[in-house]
Design a protein around this nucleic acid. Structure first.
Lengths: 199, 199
DNA sequence: CCACATCTGTAGCGAACACTACAGATATGT
DNA sequence: ACATATCTGTAGTGTTCGCTACAGATGTGG
């Protein structure tokens, strides 16, 4: 018994293309026709590989998360909590205005509110955002253990604050905010972080 | 010559219903069927009154902006710039978690990224967000003239920062953040504001 | 070289979409 | 009371949506 005809396209490259479309148009604003064209495959290939439109999104999100984890490693490996916050904010400002990608972040532009039948999509995106928040919190917990952060600092609050600011930057990036504008916001936020970690 | 049969529904009440649907499902996630059911009218009445789905959204946004302006007046009439920022942040935390409305804010949940043919929608929402930002900036310009804010403070930066934070709060509200969580974020942001206005 | 398993491309499926034609209802102005 | 103008409800329109049946292509294992 044979093993069948091999796939004629690279799944990861195709996912990168799909990611871009979802990112630019949101989940519900994206059509299968746009996806198949961007991925240079036909619908049956898409459905054989990913199951459904939502399955494709999840696969794209998995790939997005992979890349993001690698990126977060760089951020989290900074020496101090302050430097973690600084890198996190500034790298976000740059990433969200990187001309190689659509503005903002897939986890926000992908869809905050969806229609009946796609209720799972905002939930899925939120779970990935929470992941980042958790990674930050864990890092700040460690910083407390290392006496890098003060005793009375709440890692959860810090992580939530940074997460909120970068999500807000996504919204502004989607309406054309420049890299400089986002960096300005990041700089102000960093001062808040400093102030918070002193008190 | 007669003036025709009068409209049998209240347009403003219908707009409030439409607003809720757009807010909860986003522009593209909302169907005409959902709208007509929520508004308790039939499609021809909707189209006679508002022209199109996008026309209805704009009318709903106009009504939303009206209410928001009244709300912003209360905020902007605070005595000091610091109190303006405090009210703005805290009222946002409360409004975005008001059980009477869907979580977040129509201007964000409505749709950051839309499909081909609806490119105008994110633009329209962004314009309304910019309006709020402009109102804040003008208020901070005044605060500078009144020597309430220091000479070297940039009103644009302050307004952008507050706008970014509240937009970020919208994202978090959409994934179930509680009022207390948002207030915590608002409190941290306010410290940033204080720090920024000192330096 | 052959049986088989899987992929590819064409072509199109039913359902849901935004939107509207039309006929009847209900007001106004004279 | 009557002509007119606009609204309402029913019942659709054409289009696009996500998705798939099917036949031919292309590989593997024996």
């Amino acid at each position: 018994m044979g093993m069948g005809r091999p796939r004629a396209f690279d799944a990861d490259a195709a996912l990168d293309r799909a990611m871009d479309v979802f990112w630019r148009h949101g989940y519900e604003g994206t059509t299968i026709a746009q996806l198949t064209e961007a991925m240079s495959i036909n619908p049956p290939s898409l459905y054989a590989a990913f199951g459904s439109k939502e399955g494709l999104l999840k696969a794209a999100l998995d790939r997005y998360t992979e890349k993001r984890d690698a990126w977060m490693d760089k951020v989290l490996n900074a020496q101090t909590a302050h430097e973690v916050a600084e890198r996190f904010l500034m790298e976000h400002a740059d990433a969200q205005t990187d001309p190689a990608n659509p503005p903002g972040c897939l986890l926000v532009q992908g869809g905050l509110a969806c229609g009946t039948g796609s209720e799972n999509v905002p939930f899925e995106l939120a779970a990935r955002r929470t992941r980042t928040e958790d990674q930050l919190r864990e890092r700040f917990v460690r910083a407390k253990a290392e006496h890098d952060l003060d005793e009375n600092v709440d890692p959860t609050t810090l992580a939530r604050y940074l997460s909120a600011v970068t999500s807000g930057m996504c919204v502004m990036a989607s309406s054309g905010a420049t890299r400089e504008t986002l960096r300005e916001i990041a700089a102000v936020s960093l001062k808040a972080f400093e102030e918070q970690t002193k008190g």
